[in-house]
Nucleic acid binder design. Structure first.
Length: 286
DNA sequence: ATCCAGGTATGCA
DNA sequence: TGCATACCTGGA
């Protein structure tokens, strides 16, 4: 058990109720956070941190060994470097009660900015899985193939590390058919050093087109990776939940996934991805 | 036990 | 283009 730093505010710009903080880090954007003694403990990149809310102020602390590193990363990671006030305001909440309702329900909810490579990985694990299963797989991948950050807590393996893991070992980690895709993707990425860094910097449309060349990455997973791991707020991932929710709310009952995605991008505009997150959260009770 | 789940790739009309 | 089907496996 390591010694933890003192609690400090993440940034003046990030304030929200406690249950919204939980929704932010453990509501399906990221998969390595868990409730822990009045706050949440999570892992990303080579960082480990706990976060909590005190009178609406989001605070963090980290193991002292890595405090400096985490301190430099935490604000960017939870989306506190992005100014969300004008972004919330730009969403069509005045004219759209179906959006207004979850925006009132989850005040302060934002989009995280996670390491791109591991966001791609986590969402490649997510197809046809429920969140608890995805979290379990990510944990197993980290434990078996990732570097130990502090005693007992492991980072996710990066793509270079994954390249040295056999498909059989990946299957044994609970990945099922996703193992073949992840293995093939790691092979592709090993032959293209820096490819992910370039894609991350591309404009949304181009980045998505490139990302979908990776085996196991279709439109939905590409959109999730770009929204949660590359700051592309116009990305609008449509999964079965969003399809269902929007089917009910906007009378799109038997529209195809791609049609719903198009509707969302047009209706919600340049920050459609944030609207998507509110709608996704609305499926859940607070 | 049997069914389905935060999709994607592939094979036919 | 457009739809149907297989794909792994754990949890309800």
């Amino acid at each position: 058990m390591s010694t933890w730093s003192d609690w400090r505010a993440v940034s003046p710009s990030i304030r929200c109720p406690e249950f919204v903080l939980g929704e932010l880090v453990d509501g399906g954007q990221a998969f390595r956070w868990n409730a822990f003694e009045g706050g949440y403990r999570g892992v990303w990149g080579n960082c480990v941190a706990e976060v909590r809310c005190v009178d609406g102020v989001v605070e963090w602390r980290a193991p002292e060994l890595i405090e400096e590193r985490v301190g430099k990363a935490i604000a960017g990671y939870v989306g506190a470097d992005e100014t969300f006030a004008p972004i919330w305001d730009a969403l069509p909440h005045r004219s759209d009660p179906a959006l207004r309702k979850p925006m009132d329900q989850w005040p302060g909810l934002r989009i995280m900015r996670q390491p791109f490579g591991e966001t791609v990985l986590c969402f490649m694990c997510s197809s046809m899985k429920q969140i608890p299963s995805i979290k379990l797989i990510c944990e197993t991948l980290a434990t078996r193939f990732g570097r130990e950050i502090i005693p007992g807590i492991h980072a996710l393996p990066d793509w270079a590390a994954l390249h040295h893991v056999s498909e059989t070992e990946l299957r044994a980690a609970g990945l099922g058919y996703r193992a073949r895709h992840i293995h093939a993707a790691s092979h592709f990425l090993a032959g293209q050093p820096g490819w992910l860094d370039v894609v991350e910097q591309l404009p949304y449309e181009q980045a998505k087109e490139q990302l979908m060349h990776l085996p196991g990455v279709g439109a939905k997973i590409a959109d999730c990776a770009l929204l949660f791991g590359a700051g592309k707020l116009e990305a609008f991932p449509v999964d079965t939940w969003i399809k269902r929710i929007m089917g009910d709310a906007y009378g799109l009952a038997d529209w195809k996934i791609e049609q719903v995605a198009h509707f969302g991008r047009v209706h919600f505009g340049e920050y459609a991805g944030l609207a998507q997150q509110f709608l996704f959260s609305s499926a859940r009770k607070k």
